[in-house]
């Protein structure tokens, strides 16, 4: 009897720990929306997301809260990081699974683990002291730029892209490969025409997940992108500084007075949260459909 009660109590405790994560997620949504939603409704979602001017402490006239340039900044830098990290990451994954002799594979695996572990603020610092001056000296401009942000984020995204792609490539049935090689295809032809197409959905999931992570990244981009809340001019100029949504929150929380300004930062958090959630959901679905294919 006592035994049974004890088992029940323990099961209840374990259940409680299991729902903790759900409770935290709900609390995050409640508090984010409680702080940010009234402002969004008052100012207008449309005006907030598509407004071109961010000027919360207007000396004269109405303050304005438009985060469109920052949404562009976030997406721009994240996309730029993928342009750099995806080809390198996928090549590296192919190398790791198909080509590498054991010693080289061991180095890469260990390297990926270490790269994941480097704190983003250390990477940001590395970008600040090495990359920014390098870009300034070789291409002109301030150095604090979309390019610098993309490179640093690419370094952060690289290990994740490598390991998920490597998983996807490993999951391709050995028989496909053997059949292709037996037909006289070279290793490269096999990789390109058999392995990569079969691993495609897993790799796509990795890329979308990387996009979500990159948009949500804060410290590293903050330190190297210059943080000016305006659109690059012209739009394709990757040497221009931008500000991301994450940087907007970090920089202005310091001095934002309670009221519209602070609420606008929570509203920025809502937009960020929603964008990342959508990307994660898509990636999740892509990974799931791959699992389905396997069976």
């Amino acid at each position: 009897m006592i035994r049974q009660t004890r088992e029940r109590i323990i099961e209840a405790l374990l259940f409680a720990s299991a729902v903790t994560a759900v409770v935290i997620v709900l609390l995050i949504m409640v508090f984010l929306f409680k702080e940010g939603a009234p402002f969004l409704l008052k100012f207008g979602i449309h005006a907030f997301c598509l407004g071109m001017e961010w000027n919360p402490i207007a000396m004269d006239g109405e303050p304005s809260y438009g985060i469109f340039p920052m949404i562009v900044g976030s997406v721009y830098i994240a996309a730029g990081s993928l342009v750099l990290a995806v080809p390198l990451g996928i090549s590296c994954a192919i190398f790791l699974v198909e080509i590498a002799p054991p010693w080289a594979a061991a180095i890469i695996r260990r390297g990926i683990e270490l790269l994941v572990g480097i704190p983003s603020v250390v990477l940001g610092f590395f970008g600040l002291v090495l990359l920014v001056p390098l870009i300034r000296d070789s291409f002109g401009g301030f150095g604090f730029s979309i390019l610098a942000g993309s490179i640093i984020l690419a370094i952060m995204a690289l290990p994740h892209i490598i390991s998920i792609s490597a998983d996807a490539i490993t999951a391709v049935p050995e028989t496909y490969k053997q059949a292709s090689l037996a037909l006289g295809a070279t290793r490269w032809h096999t990789i390109r025409n058999v392995i990569l197409p079969a691993a495609r959905s897993g790799i796509v999931a990795a890329v979308i997940l990387g996009m979500g992570n990159s948009i949500g990244e804060t410290m590293a981009v903050l330190m190297v992108t210059g943080n000016s809340p305006i659109l690059p001019e012209p739009l394709y100029d990757v040497l221009d500084p931008v500000r991301t949504m994450t940087a907007n929150i970090v920089i202005e929380m310091n001095y934002a007075a309670p009221g519209d300004h602070r609420q606008a930062l929570f509203a920025t958090g809502i937009v960020l949260f929603v964008m990342v959630a959508i990307l994660n959901a898509i990636s999740h679905r892509a990974l799931k459909s791959r699992m389905g294919e396997g069976r």
């Binding site: 729902v19 994560a21 759900v22 935290i24 997620v25 609390l27 995050i28 508090f31 984010l32 409680k34 702080e35 979500g212 948009i215 949500g216 990244e217 804060t218 994450t246 929150i249 970090v250 929380m253 930062l265 929570f266 958090g269 960020l272 949260f273 990342v276 959630a277 994660n280 999740h284």
Partner: peptide, 21 residues
Amino acid sequence: FGVECLAGIPSIVIGLFGYAF
């Protein structure tokens, strides 16, 4: 799903929530 979601939330959003909550 909740565990997955929590893992995907950007750290600055967790920071904002930590501040408010």
